[in-house]
Design a binder for these strands. Structure first.
Length: 487
RNA sequence: GGCUCCAUCGUCUAAUGGUUAGGACACGGGCUUUUCAAGCCUGUAACGGGGGUUCGACUCCCCCUGGAGUCACCA
């Protein structure tokens, strides 16, 4: 069987972190078996439409580097096209299709027209809730005659179409959790066509999954309880059910479903905070799924090869941001130079193609866990911040010695070859040889040198600083430090 | 409240009847080191409770407890 998975987000303007994980699992499943991964957009709620939301969603797929085989595509000129032969892939363009299938259900007696107003429904639910009953539609409109319905429709009364849930039990085999059963007496007569003529989720998803030949439906755990409605719909149409797999929820620190109120829920916000796409992908893919027992970092190819639906955890997972930070740092460290510079560019106003700033980024990369931290870290390389002369003095030394050491090292740096300045290791060797041959103490020389170059008590090593700043700027900074003692 | 799902360190997780219950993040200590970071070594820390089944349960079954999700003309 060819695996055809799909993700079906509603276009809200951002990609939920939970959606991303489902995307990843869909992607892994499709890619490991030569299947297809399909993107479908569920925009049947007119009230929630957001301008430019689809473009933004597609843009996020591009930024993450996740490709799909069918669905809407954002083109270079900003317009949206589609690929695949099961289109359209946007539900608002499929209305006539849903209408047709709803009519079929109506004709077969599997659905009925309901004129009940929102007010009546609200009252009914309030009463049921007060009586500690599960809120459910009371089927009053089932009693309507054909003539009643015809006249009320011609009078312009608005109505919805509800599916008529039969009696009995229903069950399915979840690919992650195993068999899950429900009693249909607990299931409400779901609205399948809304009064504005749009299909509701339940009808649209069943029709689309069937028409698009979806073999595996991966979705969040919050959908488990609505699955019986979709099973019933499949039975009414006589269609084969896809395999369902409900992935566990991603949680707030308090273990409730991840929500905007309690933290960042969008992939875009993590991107904006300076997390690398690769780190986000790695981190989210291994939330609730553990490929091997002894490793944390995986490439997408490894994940595709190792992914196994039956190994997906059943319980929800709290996002451990500190671990994401750690993982991001791992990825920043491994980035090749050009990729690092390209990644940092959007996050800083400094020109990282300028030699000193470029080297500053390379030196500071090991001390940064998010891209947004670079600006602050490389600022001292662009302009020497003011500092107090007292911090130049090594704890085991004094001002007189400090000034002398700086003068001497300044002379040494002046006579150091340009060739030596091309590599951190060469600088380190040269400085250490200087200290050794003059019978000096590391601290007496290295501490003031480093502070003179960085202006800070905590910083990169003097060798890294010398390399990043270059000979000329280094000498200028050391000279400035020496004169501080004369003031 | 009904229905459904879930349950190993603080967090993410490994273990598929027999382990000193392993790893990662975070935290503590140490090494390295001029400082910071990184790296390396190392420490603290978990099977929710009760019954079964079994020679033997983290692993299988039941109950309890706890947590979560869901009960819309939102998806």
């Amino acid at each position: 069987m060819t695996v055809r998975t799909r993700i079906a987000p509603s276009p809200t303007g951002y990609m939920h972190i939970g959606t991303l994980r489902t995307v990843l699992f869909d992607y892994f499943l499709a890619r490991q078996g030569g299947g297809q991964f399909i993107l479908r957009v569920e925009d049947t709620d007119q009230a929630r439409l957001v301008d430019g939301a689809l473009e933004s969603l597609l843009g996020t797929f591009q930024k993450l580097g996740i490709d799909y085989d069918e669905g809407p595509v954002l083109q270079a000129d900003g317009s949206i096209a589609e690929k695949g032969d099961c289109g359209p892939y946007v539900q608002s363009a499929r209305l006539s299709l849903y209408k047709k299938y709803a009519d079929e259900l109506l004709a077969d007696g599997h659905a009925y027209i309901c004129f009940c107003t929102k007010e009546r429904l609200d009252e009914m639910r309030a009463a049921q809730t007060a009586a500690k009953q599960t809120p459910k539609y009371d089927r009053r409109c089932c009693a309507l005659t054909v003539d009643d319905i015809a006249s009320r429709r011609t009078n312009g009364e608005t109505y919805v179409v509800r599916m008529k849930i039969p009696e009995g039990k229903v069950a399915f085999d979840d690919a992650i959790r195993g068999r899950i059963a429900f009693d249909l007496s607990d299931v409400d007569d779901q609205v399948i066509i809304k009064s504005d003529g749009f299909a509701s989720y339940h009808l649209a998803v069943v029709v689309d999954d069937h028409l698009m030949r979806i073999s595996h439906v991966l979705r969040g755990e919050e959908w488990i309880s609505s699955t019986p409605k979709q099973i019933v719909l499949h039975e009414m149409f006589g269609w084969k059910m896809p395999v369902y797999a409900h992935v566990p929820l991603i949680l707030n620190p308090d273990k409730t479903k991840l929500s905007k109120r309690k933290g960042d829920v969008s992939v875009e916000s993590y991107l904006a905070k300076g997390y690398l796409p690769a780190a986000i992908l790695n981190f989210i893919a291994t939330l609730g799924f553990n490929p091997t027992a002894d490793r944390e970092v995986y490439t997408m190819d490894e994940l595709v090869a190792l992914f196994d639906l039956t190994k997906v955890n059943h319980g929800g997972a709290v996002m451990n941001i500190e671990k994401l930070d750690w993982m991001n740092q791992q990825y920043i460290t491994k980035l090749d130079k050009d990729a690092l510079l390209a990644a940092v560019t959007p996050f800083t106003t400094y020109d990282v193609t300028e030699p000193i700033m470029r080297r500053a980024v390379l030196v500071e990369r090991g001390r940064v866990s998010r891209l947004t931290e670079f600006t602050e870290r490389i600022a001292p390389y662009a302009e020497m911040p003011p500092y107090d002369a007292s911090i130049l003095i090594w704890k085991k030394s004094n001002a007189t010695d400090c000034q002398m050491q700086l003068s001497n090292i300044c002379n040494f740096v002046t006579t150091t070859s340009d060739e030596t300045f091309t590599q951190i290791a060469l600088l380190e060797t040269a400085i250490k040889a200087y200290i050794e041959s003059n019978g000096l103490q590391n601290g007496n020389v290295l501490w003031p040198l480093r502070v003179a170059l960085s202006s800070a008590e905590k910083s990169a090593s003097p060798y890294e600083l010398l390399w990043a700043l270059g000979k000329e700027e280094s000498i200028a900074r050391i000279t400035a430090a020496i004169t501080k003692f004369d003031a």
